[in-house]
Amino acid sequence: MWGHIRGMLQRDAQLADKKDFISGFTALHWAAKDGNGEMVQKLMDIAYRRRRREALLHVDSKAHGGYTPLHIAAIHGHTEVMLLLVQRYGASVHERDNDGKKAWQYLGTGVSDELWALMGGVQHSKYWDKTDDKDYREQPKGLSKLFQPHRKHRHATRSMY
C-alpha cells in the first residue's frame, strides 16, 4: 500500500512524524522495528524532498521510554537499518533512552567491531571479556511486549511416555 501512503505523505509530509498514542512510535520507529531499510529510505527521502525550513521527519524522535529509531533497530538487531540511520541520515549515537542507555548498549553478541565503533560503543579487543559490559547490553526486564521482536510460535512436541 506504499502508493496510498506516498500520496498522503506528498500532501502532508508531517504525517510521517506523527506519533502512535500508545507507543509513541513514528513511522520511522515502526520501519526500524521491522528492519525495513527500504521503508526507512522512502520515508526519509520524502521528508528531505519536501523539506523547507523545518525538519519534516526527525531521525532522533523519541517514543515513550525515550527510544529513538536507532534504539529500536539496535534492540531488534537490524544492522542495515542502524547503518542507514547513522551513516546516511545522521542519527545521533549519543541519545539516551529513559533508562539512560544509548543505542549501542542494546547491541547483541556477534556484532562487528566496526558497528560497535560506529554506534559509539566500546571497542572489542583480545583482552575484552564479554561479561564486562553485560549489564549495558541487557534489555530491561520490564520492556513492553510492544518493543519485543516478533517471534514465531513453536509448538512443543510432548512425549506420550
Rank of each mutant, 00 (worst) to 15 (best):
119 M>Y: 02
14 Q>N: 13
19 K>T: 08
10 Q>W: 07
128 W>T: 11
55 A>V: 09
142 G>D: 15
40 V>I: 12
17 D>H: 13
40 V>K: 11
47 A>L: 03
66 G>W: 10
53 R>S: 15
92 S>M: 01
105 Q>R: 12
123 Q>E: 14
147 F>M: 15
131 T>R: 12
91 A>G: 03
95 E>M: 11
157 T>I: 14
87 Q>E: 08
19 K>R: 07
144 S>E: 15
40 V>E: 11
112 S>C: 04
59 V>W: 03
49 R>I: 10
3 G>A: 15
101 K>Y: 03
24 G>R: 01
149 P>E: 02
118 L>I: 09
44 M>Y: 07
59 V>L: 03
107 L>G: 08
58 H>P: 01
120 G>M: 05
14 Q>H: 11
103 A>N: 05
55 A>H: 00
139 Q>I: 12
110 G>F: 01
132 D>G: 02
110 G>Y: 05
156 A>R: 11
66 G>I: 00
42 K>G: 02
152 K>S: 15
26 T>N: 05
8 M>H: 04
153 H>I: 12
28 L>T: 04
122 V>H: 15
73 A>F: 14
21 F>W: 00
13 A>T: 11
44 M>V: 05
108 G>W: 07
88 R>G: 00
147 F>I: 05
6 R>H: 12
28 L>M: 02
94 H>G: 01
15 L>Q: 15
33 K>D: 04
43 L>H: 07
111 V>M: 03
41 Q>P: 03
157 T>A: 11
136 Y>C: 13
64 H>Y: 12
117 A>Y: 10
7 G>N: 13
23 S>T: 12
133 D>S: 08
141 K>R: 15
48 Y>Q: 09
57 L>Q: 15
19 K>M: 11
49 R>P: 00
65 G>N: 04
34 D>E: 12
9 L>F: 09
53 R>H: 04
36 N>Q: 05
23 S>W: 05
142 G>K: 08
104 W>F: 09
130 K>T: 01
5 I>H: 03
160 M>Y: 04
88 R>A: 09
120 G>I: 06
118 L>R: 01
134 K>S: 09
35 G>C: 13
46 I>T: 06
61 S>M: 03
14 Q>W: 10
136 Y>Q: 12
158 R>F: 14
149 P>M: 03
75 I>Q: 15
96 R>W: 01
114 E>W: 00
97 D>M: 10
107 L>M: 14
67 Y>K: 06
62 K>D: 00
52 R>Y: 05
138 E>K: 14
16 A>R: 02
27 A>G: 01
36 N>W: 05
65 G>L: 08
102 K>E: 10
111 V>Q: 06
1 M>F: 07
44 M>R: 06
48 Y>K: 14
84 L>K: 15
5 I>T: 07
112 S>Q: 05
5 I>G: 02
20 D>V: 03
49 R>F: 15
52 R>Q: 08
19 K>G: 01
